[in-house]
Design a protein around this nucleic acid. Structure first.
Lengths: 134, 134, 134, 134
DNA sequence: GTGGTCTAGACCACT
DNA sequence: GTGGTCTAGACCACG
């Protein structure tokens, strides 16, 4: 599980991290139960501050994706993941935003579909499946 | 063209504005050549700071969606829209982010597709068309 | 709304803060919609670091008690408060822990009940009501 | 007297131990005078560090619940239990904290009372009795 | 060696 | 003037 941080973007480092961890989980690079690198070691590997990694990990804990124990953070799958209440509409709104942003710049629905397929491929998911329903 | 601003959210007001203007253009509520309300009047209508509206408009100018004239800001079509350099990959990355975020919380590709169709309907676009290719 | 921080305790400052804010809400010292002091001003008032106050506020946002906007944090009552999933059993376990801790040191159930009544009084709640069912 | 340790929680292991020992004493699973398993054997049974069990036992000694002898740790009654100086107010504060936390999330006083009764039942205590006043 | 808390101080985004 | 992000570094709790 290798992470790459871009510093010349406005996306917060901790967001880049949460994204990449989620992706690693989805495509099987990271397995359930696996322990993530310690906050401090990952921070030093990436050349970022401990608190930044800490924040990323804790966000994932709040989302039910990681579990915090006294020995570190490990990957989990919480049943409550599926029930997340406002989460669904939140994702839906973001999805709509991105589509609108693309459409007005000439990106077609077809193009978005192709991207979907690429992503599905990259994640080793069949296109009609989410990770959990797998 | 009616805008609704939510103040008790963390989404910047200017982002809410640009989104809604883009959407209005896409679904035909706002037409090419049309002049947008003046910065001052819109700001007072919405009860927001003048600078905020100004910022929103200027972002859209930068994106090639609006043109600033002496009469105000009006909607246009700029060829640069299609060529926007990093824009394509930027949208693609955001698209991927949203998908990953949804997938890990159990939202299926099928669900995303349904949302796409709803959005296409809402915007009066056939599913294989973007705004510009119209 | 006046806060008092004790430094000679092992209870984290941010926990002391969240507790006192909750209490202020329950007993009506703080009203729904009210804006809390800014992170930085409260921090300087209390002589603690900005990040500490920030953490307290954000915990309350996560719990659905505060709402973060671009102008600050204000008190909210989110309907989701009642549905909090694991929250109920978590509180129940803590409650049991405290009872056991007291019982083994000779504190009677009667004593706990008296404390309950005092607290209800202090919060201006009748004893059969919670805040929300008010 | 069987202990169950959860490692994927943030509650310190030694706390889990002290809680369970206290509960065992309260509900009669452990009797006065009884000798607890040795630090080493309990540690190996539970698969935890020896120091951890040691710490748990010593906390209970400090609280006057265990007595250390040459044979090991055994359960006792110490008069100091009732007089514990700050202990009473400490428990009271924790009790208040838990109540506030529950109340603000919609748990009623009635609910807390029901929980009290369940706990009393589970511990085989009549509701007006504490362990010591037994 | 793990994470947690707190501080001090810098720089940025939004209104 | 609001909050957000990030850094650097200290000290503590747990195992």
């Amino acid at each position: 599980m290798i992470f790459e941080i871009e510093t010349d973007t406005t996306i917060p480092i901790y967001t880049q991290l949460t994204q990449q961890i989620k992706q690693a989980i989805l495509n099987g690079q990271a397995n359930i139960g696996e322990t993530l690198p310690s906050v401090r070691s990952l921070a030093s590997d990436l050349g970022v501050n401990m608190h930044t990694v800490n924040k990323a990990y804790n966000i994932l804990v709040d989302e039910g994706i990681l579990r915090k124990s006294q020995q570190g953070y490990n990957i989990q799958f919480n049943e409550t993941l599926r029930e997340a209440p406002n989460f669904r509409t939140e994702v839906q709104e973001q999805f709509k935003s991105v589509l609108i942003d693309g459409l007005i710049h000439g990106i077609t629905f077809t193009q978005f579909q192709e991207w979907s397929q690429e992503i599905a491929k990259e994640l080793n998911l069949s296109e009609n499946e989410s990770f959990n329903s797998n």
